[in-house]
Computed example of a mutant assay.
Amino acid sequence: MTTGADLSLTETFPNNANLPLVRRLEAVGFRAWPASSVQYDGSWQVRLTAGHPSNRLNSIVPLDPSDHRDVEIRLAKASRKFEAYGRPAVLRQTPLASPVLIDLIRKQQWASFDETIVMTCDLAHAELPDTLDHLPTHDIGRFVDANLATDGVSSKLKPALAEIINAIKPPSGLFMIEDAQTGPLATVLCVQDNDLAGIMSLSVAKERRREGLGIEILTSALRWARMRSARSAWLQVKATNAPALALYERFGFHEAYRYSYWRLEPSR
């Protein structure tokens, strides 16, 4: 049997997607990971964040499959905004992107990368493992330090990541597992937007993986969200991240839709 996780990006776009669900998850995703600058061109959202390289914060995001007026002119205009930031244009294709636009970027020799699966879970009825509970911290600086350390990312990104987390408007839980001798072991950010809980930045220190820390910290975040009346949880994970997919499926997460990024490959 072929599952959603086995299908290619082109096979899952756009006919297999529940578009109202996609629109809602895209909206809560924007609020959970806010860009510094957001501009609109019709239904296209142009997201830019000078201090952070994340594609989720720096991409053109079309939000209406029927919006394909003057796509070539508008794409060139949006691309110039990225040039002003000194970075190449990136387009994020979800099931809400117009096929006309995707045909155009294919013809212009844009290349697809970082296929990502958006997953959801019925949190109200999920059976969460009986693990040690961790309470969220209110210390953003400490959480950012821990997240960068467990992710193996440069501490130079601390100001940008702290700014992003400070800009999150919905209630957020910052969870950490630490060792007094060795330091941070695992982190996760849970953003509760009404009845939806978004799982962000889940990270386990490389040398401590496969010890159950991911299960422990994810359980704490989901338990916290459920106590605050969240009924569903969502997250985003790269399609190639088999260990993470296995973890999330264990909690009852299943695929809702996929997205991918596109960029113009430099001429050789």
Rank of each mutant, 00 (worst) to 15 (best):
S79Y: 06
Q93F: 01
D114W: 04
K81T: 05
P88Q: 02
D64W: 04
D67P: 12
S98F: 07
N58P: 14
L104Q: 04
R69K: 12
A78N: 10
S98K: 08
V71Y: 11
R92D: 00
F113K: 13
A89T: 04
A89L: 11
K77T: 13
I105Y: 06
R74T: 06
D67K: 14
S79N: 07
P65D: 11
N58D: 10
P99E: 05
R106T: 03
G86A: 13
I60P: 11
P62I: 06
A111I: 15
V90E: 06
V100T: 03
P62A: 11
A89N: 10
N58I: 04
A78H: 08
K81N: 08
V90M: 04
P99T: 00
P65T: 12
F113T: 08
W110G: 13
S98L: 04
T94A: 03
K81H: 12
E72H: 12
P88T: 02
W110V: 08
D114F: 15
D103L: 05
D103Q: 00
Y85N: 09
S98C: 07
L75H: 10
L75A: 07
L101N: 02
L75C: 07
S66M: 12
S79R: 06
Q108L: 09
S66W: 09
P62R: 15
A111R: 15
V90P: 08
S79Q: 03
A78E: 10
L101F: 02
I102P: 00
S59K: 08
V71C: 15
P99R: 06
G86D: 03
A76Y: 03
Q93E: 02
S112M: 14
R92C: 03
R87W: 01
S66C: 14
L104S: 03
G86K: 07
R69G: 14
N58Q: 07
K81M: 13
S66H: 15
F113Y: 11
S98W: 02
S98P: 09
P88L: 05
K107N: 04
T94P: 00
D114E: 07
Q108C: 11
R106W: 07
E83H: 12
W110P: 13
Q93I: 00
I105N: 02
R74N: 15
P88N: 02
K107F: 03
P65C: 14
K77E: 15
P62N: 15
S98A: 14
R80C: 11
F82I: 01
L91W: 01
E83R: 12
L101G: 09
D103K: 02
A76D: 08
K107M: 00
L101I: 00
I105A: 09
L104I: 02
S98I: 00
T94C: 01
H68N: 12
P65Q: 05
E83V: 02
N58W: 05
P99Q: 10
E83W: 08
